[in-house]
């Protein structure tokens, strides 16, 4: 994993685990905020658009977010498919193992949530806003699973790697 990054003239150091954890926490806070906004839009239709337009708007933003996250995480944590030395490979395998554990649960949750999208005896008894939310829940869970698939292995790697030394210290 690289420990120093350059954005124009600004040098960003990621040797410190605490700093890497702040970064991961920030990214996931943004994601959760976005998920909350999307859920709000779906249930309240706050933008006064038709349902199709709202869905298209959410999907378009999700696409942009996917690409942005993929670029940022690959840039910071390194390409997870690239060949590293044995320790790096071990750490990546471990990160993938832990991340895909959650992916499995996400898929299962989406599968069970799809029950609410079909006609069933429970949803007609619920308030309209909650019903609308439950209908969209499987897609939302699948979307969250895709986010986890794209970001979680790198996030686990960034979160768990201990403090590192710079190239200057090593030479």
């Amino acid at each position: 994993m690289k420990t120093e990054y350059a954005v124009g003239n600004i040098r960003i150091h990621f040797e410190s685990r605490a700093r890497r954890r702040w970064f991961v926490a920030f990214i996931y806070t943004v994601l959760v905020a976005y998920a909350a906004l999307a859920a709000f839009e779906i249930t309240q239709r706050s933008l006064n658009r038709t349902e199709t337009t709202t869905a298209a708007w959410i999907v378009a933003r999700c696409g942009i977010l996917f690409v942005a996250l993929w670029i940022v995480f690959t840039w910071v944590a390194g390409d997870m498919r690239a060949r590293g030395d044995e320790r790096e490979m071990h750490r990546r395998d471990h990160a993938h193992f832990r991340a895909y554990y959650f992916v499995g649960y996400g898929i299962m949750a989406a599968f069970f949530a799809s029950f609410f999208a079909e006609p069933n005896p429970i949803t007609p008894l619920l308030p309209l806003a909650l019903r609308t939310f439950l209908v969209k829940l499987p897609q939302m869970l699948l979307m969250a699973t895709i986010f986890i698939y794209i970001t979680l292995p790198q996030a686990i790697l960034l979160w768990t790697e201990p403090d590192m030394e710079t190239e200057r210290e090593a030479s």
Binding site: M1, T3, G84, D85, E86, R87, E88, P162, M164, E165, E167, E169, A170, S171
Partner: peptide, 23 residues
């Protein structure tokens, strides 16, 4: 240096640090 040893062994210099610390 760690970098020299890492180059000789074909590993990342950080791996040498982790090895030395027993991590």
């Amino acid at each position: 240096s760690r970098q020299e040893l890492a180059d000789a062994l074909g590993v990342n210099y950080q791996t040498i640090g982790f090895l030395e610390r027993g991590d």
